[in-house]
Design a protein around this nucleic acid. Sequence first.
DNA 1: TAGATTTGACCATG
DNA 2: CATGGTCAAATCTA
Length: 295
Amino acid sequence: MEDMEEREQKCLINELLQGRELAMQLQAHLNLPSCNETRELLLQQIQASYDKALSLLNYKAIGTSDTIDPPPQSLPVRDDATVQRKSLPRWTQQVRVSPGTAMEGNLDDGFSWRKYGQKDILGAKYPSYGFKWVTCRAYYRCTHRNVQGCLATKQVQRSDDDPTIFDVAYRGRHTCSNNNQEQGTSTIEPYQQQQHIGNQTYPLFPDYLSLNIKVEKEVGDGNYETGNLSPTSSCRNPTGVMNNGSTSVATESEFTEIIRAATSAMNAPTVGLDFPFGNAGLDPNFTFDDHAFFS
DNA sequence: TAGATTTGACCATG
DNA sequence: CATGGTCAAATCTA
């Protein structure tokens, strides 16, 4: 069993490294007047590579019974919506953004989200109201929820550790037709590769991504087993094709993937952003006004 | 005017 | 009872 996991891990690392390599090639081509076909081909290869890596992750996290608590066969009879929500897979993506430029809404993961709520959450390291140690969490759901019954939601809140990092907690898989994983690579629109920062548009998954992926399995109530999966990866939304959340194999034993985007557009050499203040200039005692930021 | 956002209220859970 | 998550009416905006 150990060997199996080791092999999967190597396979995963290989895929991610390959994706990174391809992305580097793509960047080289971006600076050259080479034909679009080459770039598109590279793009397709990158996407295929990441898709494969993500499917490996999903397989490890959901598909195997020895890596996660077995699905409780008899869930207590509760409100359907509650049970359904609880059964949705969940993962968290930490994204560094530049204060004053990219809002959490600009953490474009290729899906269209609609904000449906915002809450003050306790437990923040820095007091937001001068006396209360709270942070603000914004709640989003898929725009196509009503039309297509897509149950995907996400929660965005500022990281405790670094005010320039957002924790984006995804819950549920997109079942709407906007699910870019479901579409052929030839039909993928630019939104998938770009994010908007300020007035400019930048690649969403640029080659300079050199990230640390940490996959955490939620064990029981809130305890995590942590394993470092790979030295490099991307911050791509690990959303894949999946059954409707209500019939998903995922269960109350939710899993959480922490994908820390240790780099971002603000670190990109190709991005000449005019930041009002840099990361290094952040006051360690910086108190972030969540309300001003999120509104 | 349709769709998105804001925000107070409500509800479930521990 | 405190807290987190969602609802829904009011408001905003393109």
